[in-house]
Design a protein around this nucleic acid. Structure first.
Lengths: 206, 206
DNA sequence: ACGGCAATGAGACTCAGTATCATCGCCGTG
DNA sequence: CACGGCGATGATACTGAGTCTCATTGCCGT
């Protein structure tokens, strides 16, 4: 798969250490109270190296918080039977992800708060979500049939998946995380099933 | 509608002047080469006032570039006949918006480049898109029937509308803006029509 | 009129982010 | 097995973003 040498391995490991250190310090003291120097020191690297790996302090924190999860979700997507359609596969993967939600409820709440703790933190979190979108797009692409070279569908599904998570989190935070986040995510994904033909209104209104 | 007094009017006008100055200077010299001091001076305000109105230099530039367009799109949405469904209304509004695309092709290209000219600029552009999402969500909300209090559908439609624009732009920029952007946006919106039941595959594959 | 408060300007200060240069150590070549 | 190239890092200095505080101005309600 990916080319792996001593050099690239060490670089990846360094990046990982920095992200972990950033997430740990920011979780404990808040993003604003954590300086780039502290993160670099905690990761055992120089300050310059820190900024060689991340474009901003906020991106490092966001990456440290969530970078592991992206591999989890891609892994879960791969486990869904191949004949399941793209969007249903996302639903299934998220459902699996939500199974052990209650055990980590407080962690999720803290991370969601941290991601929104400042406008800059939120902006860079959105930036990271774009990476997730692409990872999900790549993961669901094989599930499309008759896929044109630049077919927009995989990336739109990726965007939809991340939008569902983000908006579900927003809704979840309204009552300080007391609700059922996985259920909210599913509801948001279902919302996308906008009536294929909206006029007849499938919800049977009136 | 909104409360309007001499005070709030002046504040709004000041914000507008700052955003305009930011967009003008950044368009001419690039974001990195434009300092907050220059923008403040160009807008005729103090440096402190600049940061009272915008959380970052990048957000000011992005706002100046695109803030007018949000009113346009909301206005166009309002003009679509009320019986048209939410998603089709978005399609129609974007179609109207794209009518005079060729006349502004170079402007769009410059702005799209500027929004992606640095990781920070891109991140803050994404942040601004969230505002657009909410504006679109509010604009299409009346088009939903049987709308529950916290129904996720309006916001998901808003998110998809902005995702379509963003991803279409990405695709458009691949060949340096020589393609048909409005058509790309429509294709991305259509991708949302993911087969209501993905298995049968409506595109008639094989 | 007058007192409160929102908006601003000025200036100081911290720290994010960048650039430069030197060093170290992996990697492919002779 | 040297050795030269280059990628990754550390140290350091510098610009400028973003924050804070305090003083001033002028709209607004009593």
């Amino acid at each position: 798969m990916t080319v792996t040498s001593v050099r690239t391995d060490r670089r990846t490991a360094t990046r990982q250490r920095i992200a972990d250190a950033a997430a740990r310090l920011a979780s404990e003291h808040g993003v604003a109270a954590t300086t780039a120097d502290q993160i670099a020191a905690e990761a055992g690297v120089g300050r310059a190296t820190f900024f060689r790996h991340f474009d901003s302090k906020e991106l490092a924190v966001a990456t440290g918080l969530a970078d592991a999860a992206i591999f989890v979700i891609v892994g879960l997507l791969a486990e869904v039977p191949p004949q399941v359609g793209p969007l249903d596969a996302v639903r299934a993967a998220y459902a699996r992800l939500g199974e052990d939600f209650d055990a980590n409820r407080q962690t999720f709440l803290d991370q969601a708060d941290l991601c929104r703790s400042s406008p800059a933190m939120f902006a860079w979190t959105l930036r990271l979500y774009v990476d997730w979108e692409m990872a999900i797009a790549d993961a669901v692409r094989p599930r499309f049939v008759a896929l044109a070279p630049h077919d927009p569908r995989p990336r739109m599904v990726g965007a939809m998946a991340m939008a569902a998570v983000r908006l579900a989190c927003d809704e979840w935070l309204v009552d300080r995380g007391s609700g059922d986040l996985p259920a909210l995510v599913q509801e948001h994904l279902d919302a996308l099933h906008l009536p294929p033909d909206p006029r007849p209104d499938p919800r049977g209104a009136r």
